[in-house]
Computed example of a mutant assay.
Amino acid sequence: MKTVVRSVTAEVLTDARSVESEWAELAERIGGRFSARPTYALRELGDSRGSTRIVVARRGGSLVGVIPLAVRRLGAFDLARLAGSGRGIPQQFLCEDEHVAEALWETVARRGWVFYASSLAERDPGFGVLERDPGFVTNSTTVETAPCISVPRGVTAKDLRSRRTRKRLRQYRNSLAAAGAPLSYETISGIDHFDRRWSDMARVAEASTSLHRRLNYLAAPDGSFAHDFLRDETAAGRAVVVGLVVDGRWCAHEIALRSGNRLEAWLGHYDPGFSRWQPGHQLSEWFVDNHDLLDVTELDQGIGVNAIKSAWSNSSTNLNRVVAVPSRYRAPGLVTDAVIAWEGSTAIRRLRRLGGTLLA
């Protein structure tokens, strides 16, 4: 059944192949976050054993909105998780304007689905429409922050950091050069280059995450997902992978994705043996100084706050955990509590990570 709102028609698809190219074009046109692109969303939802549901909206025949969901039965209701939930990334659904968002949400409400997103970007289009929609009882809580660096054209590191800080970073580079182990920046350019450096990226990621006891998304069970996604994004010219190379050895990297005028940091790692030369700050300085060349005006540093991000950021985006229960439910508060308990369960998170085909 199709929903029509102010000349916008919305429906639910179980197979996205018929709209995949239009979806990619829509994401490119409105600068959608990488989690909302088909290269990411369909690959992630592909583990959900047929529960993939794509809510799409059209106006005058053109695709103008997409919400990619994984739908599964949870007790007495159907839970619809936005692509990227639980993955530690800012989330977004695509819509050209509020009328499109209204049609998309009305379609979800008519299905009776309970919507969940773990980290929906607050200032992205459509967020406010959901909060105001009378078809839902919405619980929205800020759970994370994504620090950002606003970099209008012409801005460089000297506009954001002190002379002392920049001098210190330069001295580290000079000391390495004097020792016969010069530091250089290497930007991945093309599929062949990506393939040559993948093993180096995986090696540094393993060393970095082992030291800090963090999840390694470049290793099993996520390694093939990350490899294939980044390879596709590299082929499309949207991946920006910058490595720090010392005396010919790959020692650190930052992996980012273009989203319109925004560059979204996804994963960053460094070899612990290189930590004294402050690789995080070295890379941050490089991105700020080269943002004009990259043709971006915002460097989104990804979920979470740390000392390096705090030192460079000059703005931020709130990321909200959102549970939206259709108004027709008699006890929306109980449903919301059940969803939060389910999604917050450590056991469920581990099972989903290790065997995603069983838990959408």
Rank of each mutant, 00 (worst) to 15 (best):
N139I: 07
T142E: 06
V143K: 10
V143E: 11
E144L: 03
T145W: 06
A146I: 00
A146H: 08
P147Y: 08
C148T: 05
I149E: 05
I149L: 13
V151P: 00
R153S: 03
G154L: 05
T156R: 15
A157S: 15
A157M: 07
K158H: 09
K158T: 02
K158A: 12
L160T: 02
L160H: 06
R161K: 07
R164A: 08
R164K: 04
R164S: 10
R168I: 10
R168Q: 03
R168M: 05
L169E: 13
R170Q: 07
R170W: 09
R170I: 03
Y172S: 01
Y172R: 07
Y172T: 00
N174S: 09
S175Q: 14
A177W: 03
A178F: 07
A178C: 12
A178P: 14
A179N: 12
P182Y: 05
P182F: 02
P182N: 07
L183Q: 02
S184P: 01
S184V: 09
S184A: 11
Y185N: 10
Y185E: 10
E186L: 09
T187K: 04
T187A: 10
I188A: 14
I188C: 13
S189M: 06
S189R: 00
G190C: 04
I191A: 12
D192Y: 04
H193Q: 04
F194G: 15
D195F: 01
R196Y: 01
R196D: 05
W198M: 12
W198T: 14
M201P: 06
M201C: 13
R203L: 10
R203F: 01
R203G: 09
V204A: 14
E206L: 14
T209P: 00
S210H: 09
S210N: 13
L211F: 06
L211V: 05
H212N: 08
R213T: 07
R214V: 07
R214A: 03
L215C: 03
L215M: 12
Y217N: 03
L218Y: 02
L218M: 13
A219I: 04
A220C: 11
P221D: 09
G223I: 03
S224W: 02
S224Q: 06
F225K: 02
F229V: 10
L230G: 12
L230I: 08
D232T: 07
E233M: 05
T234Q: 04
T234V: 15
T234Y: 01
A235I: 06
A235K: 01
A235N: 07
A235W: 01
A236E: 15
A236M: 11
G237D: 13
R238P: 01
V240Y: 04
V241L: 15
V242F: 11
V242G: 08
G243V: 08
V245K: 11
V246E: 14
D247V: 06
D247T: 03
G248Q: 08
R249E: 06
R249H: 07
W250P: 00
A252C: 11
H253T: 12
H253R: 09
I255W: 06
A256S: 15
R258P: 00
S259Y: 14
G260W: 15
G260I: 15
R262K: 07
R262E: 12
L263C: 09
L263A: 08
E264Q: 12
E264I: 08
W266I: 01
W266V: 03
L267V: 00
L267C: 07
